[in-house]
Design a protein around this nucleic acid. Structure first.
Lengths: 135, 135
DNA sequence: TCTTGACCCTGTAGTGGCTACAGGGTGCAT
DNA sequence: ATGCACCCTGTAGCCACTACAGGGTCAAGA
């Protein structure tokens, strides 16, 4: 049976990734280097497509490249317990919660600043005042 | 009347900034280069302290260096309307709202993934499954 | 056959916002 | 005189890409 082969551009289109990013993932060790054609073009197979989809999906969910590498490593050991996967995911959730808290606090302060601005000259501007030392 | 003079370390302590960061702000054009002592040390005055405090506060509130530069420019033109200041701040608020939306969506998806993991082997792991192409 | 144009290759440098050295000089107290 | 804390410049590193420059490959059309 013939196996399908994709060029780097095909993979890019299929996964919504830029060509340069795919090469970058290869250089970073996330995506294994595929075989080459006679003309030195990368020739990808189904396993590369799957792996790249995994990477993109995990990155979209905000996992760092290091976390993605860990998850990929784990995903390959199919017979082991998935406890570590759970730990990585929970750690990431905690990070997201921290960011959410920070952003909400930020938003509140910024919104208060904007609400108190009544468009006079900058000398009276509450926003500038709020940023100045001991405003 | 004598004017107070601070070393870069004094400024760093007073504003909670690292020394390297202050030099970085100078190189980036956010903080003007101060005069030097005979020994080539930077000699800061009150205006530098004020400006650095402003920068730090704005950065803490999540304004980009470019936005901070704009705000500093505007803050210097005391007689103009503060409309542009308001526009910058509102633009930043909109950015924060976008980030909040994205993070909340992320959190939801991630939490659902984690909730469905019941610690079997990786072959059955819902988290890995959720990341794999067409789940 | 020749050319056009889309695609591919490598390698390097840039982004933002710092941080961390290396390899030196200065200033003050002991 | 010596130690130590501080200062100086310049460069490289971090993350996760992105954007070139300067070439090579390949298929279709004239």
């Amino acid at each position: 049976m013939e196996t399908e082969v994709w060029s780097i551009g095909d993979l890019a289109r299929a996964t919504g990734t830029k060509v340069e990013t795919i090469r970058f993932y290869e250089k970073s060790g996330l995506l294994p280097a595929p075989p080459r054609t006679a003309g030195n073009y990368r020739a990808y197979g189904a396993e590369h497509l799957g792996r790249l989809s995994f990477i993109r999906r995990a990155r979209d969910l905000g996992f760092s490249m290091e976390q993605v590498a860990t998850l990929l490593d784990l995903a390959d050991r199919k017979d082991q317990s998935c406890e570590v996967v759970d730990i990585v995911a929970r750690g990431h959730l905690a990070e997201i919660d921290r960011k959410l808290r920070d952003l909400r606090a930020l938003r509140k302060e910024l919104a208060a600043m904007i609400a108190s601005c009544d468009h006079r000259t900058i000398a009276d501007c509450r926003i500038i005042e709020a940023l100045a030392p001991r405003g």
